[in-house]
């Protein structure tokens, strides 16, 4: 079998957790299939190759330190063309999406998105994708080359962290047409709350129904001395500010207790909170995917539960 290429992801000079999550799994899969696990780094990240101990070797494409959809995709495309790996693992992230699809289409390779699990199967890999808002797991068997986009948090980051000294190869790549130019990184506005530091979070999702009803969640948060959080749709609707958003493009939180109210549990949200010590989910749909990640749950109307809870706690 061929090698497994892991496209590393970094921001502000640090490798992101997804890199290690993928490395750990790649090493495992490569081991089983007799190939090598090769990490691809960008810009000056080859300087931190020592963190990528899980990889057998590192291919450094150089180029810009700042992510650029066009040049990074072109670079990866060059590497994949040259190395012909049997599997390319890319993060199912904002950065990964630009790279994975572009490379796969240009090279006419199979793509599999939203990978929550992977294993070797005869002649190739068996990839499980979390689809339809997390309601269905779809298994795809791939053989020959494939690009797999891996969900953040699907695998364990610690299992992929290992100090080491993989050989680093400088690789000349195509730099792309120059039609996309990075200008600057924009930090989020300083907010009145940093939910990544909160011990207890009361998170609301679409089930809250209306902006006014968020008040109820606020009452609960007050009593528990907790902060409010929310899923993306509430931020898009203007009901809450981005500082409260938990999920793929929001905050990643690990509170002691995460109370999810009216949140269905789509992967993009889970990604942001699955590391919470205790997850309690209240959702009137007993089949909601959130109950798979939650530690405790109640399949009840969130308004009834929260009202009663607030009443009881007030006494």
């Amino acid at each position: 079998m061929g090698d497994i290429l892991v496209i590393t992801e970094h921001l502000k000079g640090e490798f992101q957790d997804i890199t290690f999550e993928m490395l750990g799994k790649a090493k495992e899969l490569a081991g089983a299939s007799g190939g090598q696990c090769i990490a691809v780094t960008f810009g000056n990240m080859n300087g931190k190759a020592g963190e990528l101990g899980m990889a057998h070797s590192v291919v450094s494409v150089g180029g810009s330190d700042d992510f650029n959809p066009e040049s990074y995709a072109a670079a990866v495309q060059s590497v994949v063309s040259a190395k012909s790996p049997s599997l390319v693992m890319v993060g199912s992230t904002s950065m990964g999406m630009d790279i994975a699809n572009s490379v796969a289409t240009a090279l006419d390779i199979t793509t599999v998105s939203y990978c929550a699990d992977m294993s070797s199967s005869d002649g190739g890999f068996s990839v499980t994708s979390s689809m339809y808002g997390g309601k269905m797991n779809v298994v795809t068997d791939v053989s020959g080359s494939a690009v797999a986009m891996v969900l953040a948090g699907a695998f364990n980051a610690d299992a992929g962290k290992s100090a080491g000294s993989p050989t680093v190869e400088d690789f000349a790549v195509d730099s792309g047409a120059g039609k996309v130019r990075f200008k600057q990184l924009i930090e989020p506005e300083a907010a009145d709350v940093d939910i990544t530091q909160s011990d207890i979070l009361v998170a609301v999702g679409r089930g809250i129904g209306s902006k006014d009803d968020i008040e109820l969640a606020e009452e609960l948060a007050d009593i528990l001395d907790a902060d409010l959080a929310c899923s993306r749709p509430l931020v898009d609707a203007g009901w809450m500010s981005k500082a409260h958003q938990v999920g793929k493009s929001g905050m990643k939180v690990k509170p002691k207790v995460y109370i999810a109210l009216g949140i269905s549990g789509a992967p993009e949200h889970i990604e942001g909170m699955k590391s919470s010590s205790t997850i309690i989910a209240i959702n009137s749909d007993k089949n909601a995917p959130i109950f798979d990640v939650a530690h405790y749950g109640m399949a009840e109307d969130l308004f009834d539960v929260v009202e009663e809870l607030v009443e009881e706690l007030e006494d």
Binding site: L11, S94, V180, K183, P188, G250
Partner: peptide, 20 residues
């Protein structure tokens, strides 16, 4: 000029030439 969302509320600002 577009804003691409990263995680944690960060964004990358890019210039893109049309057609795009």
């Amino acid at each position: 000029v577009v804003h691409k969302e990263y995680s944690g509320g960060m964004m990358g600002e890019f210039e893109v030439d049309m057609p795009a």
